[in-house]
């Protein structure tokens, strides 16, 4: 603290130069913030929107889980779709990904999942909810990553492999930005159980949609859960399987 007893030597102190110095510092500060800070802030906003959407997709996945596994007939979720659009690509859309499951006994099962897709404008990423999994992929390049896994499981006591296939359908087109509501209801379900006393050879072939390639995510998921890769996008279940249970659920996304 400076007290009145301390005499400050104020020779050579000019108010004009002081003002000029402070003023230029302030202008430089404002300039730096507009040049570097503002774009950073915008980027932060886009990534926050994307994170919110990742969360929303997991919420929607939980809704689908309730519809499929807990036989809840109807689910509705309000969500905020920021810096991008959310749209339904139903299971009958041509040129989309295909899962083909075959065991050594019964007929092959061919399945088109359809998807709910969020396309971010700024971040150049797509987040898609397909076949019970949430997958994020960069729009350019090949990589994709699974944010939430589908509920396929192998019971090693009874040697049963359970594959749950969830397809998304819609009564019309649905595309949303801003605050919106996604209403879903359970459609048809089917159930196939195949017994093979000598053990079944279960194989899965995945044909990706050429424009929406999420094969890396599926590859990572499958090879981490007991499947071995036998070729490009072809997998075989490694453990011995006595019973294969394939369940199909049809979830209908209603458009308002």
């Amino acid at each position: 603290m400076m007290t009145d007893n301390d005499k400050m030597n104020a020779c050579g102190v000019s108010e004009a130069i002081g003002f000029l110095l402070i003023f230029s510092i302030v202008i430089a500060g404002i300039g730096l913030v507009t040049l570097y800070g503002y774009p950073l802030l915008m980027k932060q906003q886009t990534s926050a929107d994307e994170q919110i959407m990742e969360k929303n997709m997991i919420v929607l996945q939980n809704d689908i889980k309730s519809l499929a596994y807990k036989t809840v007939p109807y689910k509705e979720t309000s969500l905020k779709v920021g810096s991008g659009t959310l749209s339904v690509h139903h299971a009958l859309t041509p040129s989309q990904s295909t899962f083909r499951i075959s065991d050594s006994v019964g007929p092959d099962i061919e399945f088109h999942p359809g998807e709910l897709r969020y396309e971010s404008v700024g971040a150049q990423t797509d987040i898609s909810l397909q076949n019970g999994a949430v997958i994020k992929r960069a729009r350019t390049g090949e990589g994709s990553v699974m944010l939430a896994e589908p509920r396929w499981f192998y019971d090693d006591v009874t040697k049963t492999l359970v594959i749950n296939l969830i397809s998304l359908n819609s009564t019309g087109t649905l595309a949303k930005t801003g605050i919106g509501t996604v209403q879903m209801k359970l459609g048809e379900t089917s159930y196939v159980s195949q017994n093979g006393a000598g053990g079944l050879t279960v194989t899965l072939d995945y044909t990706p949609d050429p424009t929406q390639d999420t094969s890396t995510a599926w590859k990572t998921y499958l090879t981490r859960n007991g499947w071995t890769e036998t070729g490009a996008n072809s997998y075989r279940f490694a453990d011995s399987v006595n019973t294969l249970v394939v369940k199909r659920y049809d979830v209908i996304v209603q458009s308002i």
Binding site: A48, Q51, K55, I58, N62, K65
Partner: peptide, 17 residues
Amino acid sequence: INQSTVVGQTTAESVLE
């Protein structure tokens, strides 16, 4: 506040499951 946006599945949902 920014951290709160990255919560997907809550504990309550896990309990219900």
